[in-house]
Simulated scan of single mutants.
Amino acid sequence: MKLTAPIYHLKRRAKRLCREEAIPLHEALDRIAVQEGYSTWSLLAARQTTAGTAASMLAQLAPGDLVVLGARPGQGKTLKSLELAVEAMRAGHRAYFFTLEYTVTDVIERFAAIGADHGRFAPLFEIDCSDTISADHIVGKLSKADPGTLVVVDYLQLLDQRRDNPALGDQVRKLRAFARQRGLIIIFISQIDRSFEAAVKPLPDLDDIRMPNPVDLRLFDKAYFLNKGEARLLAIN
């Protein structure tokens, strides 16, 4: 059964209901579950497919992969990328989060939203909020990264903003070669064009990725698309 919103949105709704009506959280969760067509929250959680879980998504990625993770605003693409980073760190790998969008505090606060303790993973997790993030910057920062390191770039289109940066296609090509050389997994969070209409198709695809300047999407190995709690993997190469 398809949910009306991602799980984390439903949890936020339940917490708000808990405060507004002064009821226990478990009761608020069950009420939300009923609205979604399930008798209890535990049944809702159990019935949801594991296809979109971070663990199953990460299992489908391999060292050297270049991945695009796309969704419209509010569909959880940043949180999903952090969930993937957490899963990689649970397996003993390091993770890096390069962002031109958020501050360090913003990123750390989002750990709570996915139910993870930032303090536990801090030794393996590095956040880079430099204004000069580009392919060259990332390659320089990760020159000694171990195979299996997971890298999140937030987000793809912002690499194209500075006039002194190389063309976006050239940057993606450089990071593709670097990922293969070092055995890294690099995930680009990506914007989806406003023209995407969920009423026409349930999930975005490659045609919906917003590209202010042309980029050969065949440079990517895989793409994940999110919408309303659903996720789909597309193998590009």
Rank of each mutant, 00 (worst) to 15 (best):
T4H: 10
Y8N: 04
R13P: 00
A14I: 01
K15R: 13
K15H: 05
L17M: 08
E20M: 10
E21L: 08
P24L: 13
E27D: 10
A33D: 01
E36N: 05
Y38E: 00
T40F: 06
S42P: 01
S42W: 12
L43E: 12
R47C: 14
Q48T: 09
A55Q: 15
S56D: 11
L58M: 12
L61H: 00
G64D: 06
V67D: 01
V68P: 08
V68E: 02
L69W: 03
R72H: 10
G74E: 04
Q75D: 06
T78S: 15
L79H: 06
K80F: 12
L82D: 00
A85S: 14
H93M: 11
R94Q: 15
R94D: 07
F98M: 06
T99M: 11
E101K: 10
V104D: 15
R110K: 10
A112G: 05
A112V: 08
A112D: 08
G115K: 05
D117T: 02
H118Q: 09
G119S: 13
R120S: 09
F121W: 10
A122V: 12
L124M: 14
F125W: 07
E126K: 14
E126T: 14
I133F: 03
I133H: 00
I133C: 05
I133T: 00
S134K: 01
K141Y: 11
L142P: 05
K144V: 09
V153T: 04
R162E: 09
R162W: 03
R163M: 12
R163E: 10
D164G: 00
N165I: 02
P166W: 05
A167S: 07
A167F: 12
A167C: 09
L168V: 05
G169I: 12
Q171N: 04
K174D: 07
R176Y: 08
A177H: 07
R180I: 06
Q181W: 15
Q181K: 15
F188M: 10
S190K: 11
D193E: 14
E197I: 07
E197M: 12
A198G: 07
A198Y: 08
A198I: 08
K201A: 07
D207G: 15
D207V: 15
M211H: 03
N213D: 14
F220D: 02
K222Y: 04
K222T: 03
F225C: 03
N227Y: 11
N227M: 12
G229S: 06
E230H: 05
R232Y: 04
N237V: 11
